[in-house]
Design a protein around this nucleic acid. Structure first.
Lengths: 220, 220
DNA sequence: CGGGATCCGTTACGATACTG
DNA sequence: CAGTATCGTAACGGATCCCG
């Protein structure tokens, strides 16, 4: 952010907005909550962000200590959240809870990839998780793969294929959004829009119970 | 927000940012959480927002149903949060919690008035409030007056003088910020930077206990 | 004086093209 | 793949002016 446009106010809300209040910045953080990403992963997911803006925002986030750039395998550059950057999770979830109250745009654009859903889903599951629930799930949403780990009262969802999951769920993006928006019940979602296979007995019920409760959080 | 710059994404975070993601918008909502305000109250509190931008933002907020414009006494126009707009409270609090992790700007600007602190303080108190606590307090912060009502497990802080309070607290803005930032303990704040008078016995302890716990939330 | 509207220079954004 | 460079357009910031 240009120095001239910083609020510079002695108020923690303004201090936060001076770091993450720019256009695109919160959406970049949102996608990074799905795990480390390459420049082009982010550019694809953000449907039409200009390359120079993505460069600027990543630089700003790095300067402020929210994101770090590091070399991954095969020499590719990876951007990842720092512990400080990961603290935006609850904030992003509150944004999602608030945004869920509005009708979707009549002509919505689909994101270029589904990293976007990880942080919202993680935070929602975290809030409804009951003690003792534990499993490893492979989620396939429109052929994009997620790993969902639940253990010790913690939920973690990453944009990566899962090895040896307890349960596998295959579904699509739109019905998930419809369910979160209240246009479909969790029961109908489970019955008609989810294909589920348990590799460890009983874990299918744990997964669907958690997901159903999480998606229902967005209603009043 | 210009239609061309809306994200239009089928993601609740983007839907929220399409309403409240513009520059100044969240700070306007922040100040409105202190109670209904006139145009010039907002312009003063936001230290240097251009009049045309404030007009634009208020119009946008009204169009989206977050703010309503109504006639107050003596024919003055008042802007107030709708129930939907009031739902931004938890979101603003998460922003404050996150922003509190950063050092203040070396040359911070002071807000033109102290409406700015109401929502942060309300939300923080709400989260640490213990059952059974109830009082009405008059807060005087650098000669700006707030009414703090605590009853039935709810906290409400408004930018208005209080009539017949149980307890009166006189203090200043900077020590409150220092305490929230962790540069001062709640004990030192109470001992050296707060002048407190109980009109109903025991209510002074309830007020200071609540405020101390609230300001301490911003530490790790 | 409160509550804006208008004008204008500056800055950021968005699209496309280009490069190591 | 991972950015840079360029350029037209849109938003912002500051000042001034208007009107009841």
């Amino acid at each position: 952010m240009a120095a001239s446009r910083r609020y510079k106010l002695l108020c923690p809300i303004a201090r936060a907005l001076d770091r993450i209040g720019d256009r695109w910045t919160l959406l970049i953080l949102r996608d990074l909550h799905a795990g480390p990403a390459r420049f082009s992963d982010l550019q694809t997911g953000l449907t039409g962000i200009a390359a120079n803006l993505l460069t600027d925002r990543l630089q700003q986030l790095a300067d402020d200590g929210l994101v770090e750039k590091r070399a991954g395998e095969y020499g590719v550059m990876l951007y990842a959240l720092t512990p400080l950057g990961a603290r935006t999770r609850d904030l992003l979830f509150e944004l999602a809870m608030f945004g869920g109250r509005f009708e979707p745009d009549p002509e919505p654009r689909r994101p270029g990839n589904l990293r976007t859903i990880a942080v919202t889903l993680t935070a929602a599951c975290q809030r409804v998780l009951e003690p003792g629930v534990a499993f490893k799930a492979a989620l396939s949403v429109d052929d994009e793969m997620f790993t969902m780990n639940v253990a010790d009262g913690r939920v973690d969802i990453r944009y990566a294929p899962a090895s040896s999951p307890d349960v596998t769920l295959t579904t699509s993006y739109e019905p998930m959004v419809d369910t979160a928006d209240g246009n479909m019940t969790a029961e109908e979602f489970a019955a008609n829009h989810a294909e589920i296979v348990a590799h460890t007995p009983g874990k299918d019920a744990e997964l669907m119970g958690l997901l159903g409760a999480a998606m229902s959080m967005f209603r009043d």
